[in-house]
Computed example of a mutant assay.
Amino acid sequence: MVVLTKLYGQTSNNFLQFIHLDSFCRENNIPFHSPYFRKYFDQYPALQSYGVNYSKVLMKFFIRTKLYKEFSFVDDTQISAYKNAILTRKRLFCEGWYFSSKETVEKNRSLYQQLFTPNIDQQDFHNKYLKKENNETIIGVHIRRGDYKEFQGGEYYFEDDVYIDKIKQLLNNLNTPHKVIIFTNDDALNKANYTQHFNVLFSENPVHVDHFLMSRCDYLIGPVSSFSLWASYIGETPLFHIRTANDVVTLDKFKICDGNWF
């Protein structure tokens, strides 16, 4: 049995961490539990019937009394050793970001598409954001500000002119009518910078709704982030990650995320 004792990072990281451990355990018939995943039950009801209900009290007792040592996934060069620990230990309490099971994550994509079906009125959001009046290509754009000003020295923090340039490059490749949906954590975003160039909508919805909408776009553009990776994985949506302001956008550079982040 494997019990995940801590969720790593924010929502999208939580989901990616979950599917790698869960799919590997599933492939090897090992029970897997993630007690803190209860916080997602309201947003994703299918998770309630899934095996994540190991007692948090019991888990904390085992760790506090040192009856079981907490195992940490902290080194991406040790994944083989981590897999061996899961396969050979009767009960493993674990935490950390650097566990990866690429083959099983890709194999079980359809399962996670079901488990992470959001508790929303999909038709209502489709009509509001995704309906195509003139067979438009729908482009989801993730503008990450806030914490990205400092994250890795601001490497993936881009100003509006960069996003506008990348959208225009994609449109030049497509040469079709378009609709742009912008997803951002920037409450002070200058929307006029975008409305003057594009047919654009701005999503101001919770994370689980944004993930759904992004997953239903035709293309996704955004900085390197697990937020757009998750949407691409769950929706099988082509994604272009902006790594530098000088990146050139071509259709062959859009990739569907296979669930892996390194």
Rank of each mutant, 00 (worst) to 15 (best):
F212R: 02
K69P: 09
Y82P: 01
K149V: 08
D258A: 15
H126R: 13
I86W: 01
L251S: 01
F158N: 00
F37D: 02
N185D: 14
S49N: 14
R109K: 15
F32D: 02
F32N: 09
V249E: 04
I164A: 04
P238A: 10
D161V: 15
Q78V: 00
I181V: 14
L7R: 03
H197S: 04
Y157M: 02
F71R: 01
F99E: 10
Y112H: 02
I167Y: 13
S215H: 06
K102R: 10
D76M: 07
R26Q: 06
Q48C: 05
S203Q: 04
N185I: 09
Q152T: 08
K253P: 09
D161C: 10
Y233A: 05
L47D: 02
Y82V: 02
F227P: 05
V180N: 14
L47M: 09
M1E: 14
I30Y: 06
L111D: 02
Q169A: 11
F32T: 04
L87G: 07
E95Q: 13
F262M: 13
L115K: 01
W97N: 12
I234F: 11
D160V: 10
F18H: 08
F41K: 02
Q113T: 03
I234D: 00
S225A: 15
I63R: 12
K66L: 08
Q196R: 08
Q48G: 02
E150A: 13
Y233P: 00
Q169M: 11
D121A: 10
G235N: 05
Y82E: 06
L67Y: 11
G259L: 12
E70S: 01
M214S: 05
S226C: 14
Y8I: 09
Y233T: 03
T104D: 12
T117Y: 00
D147Q: 03
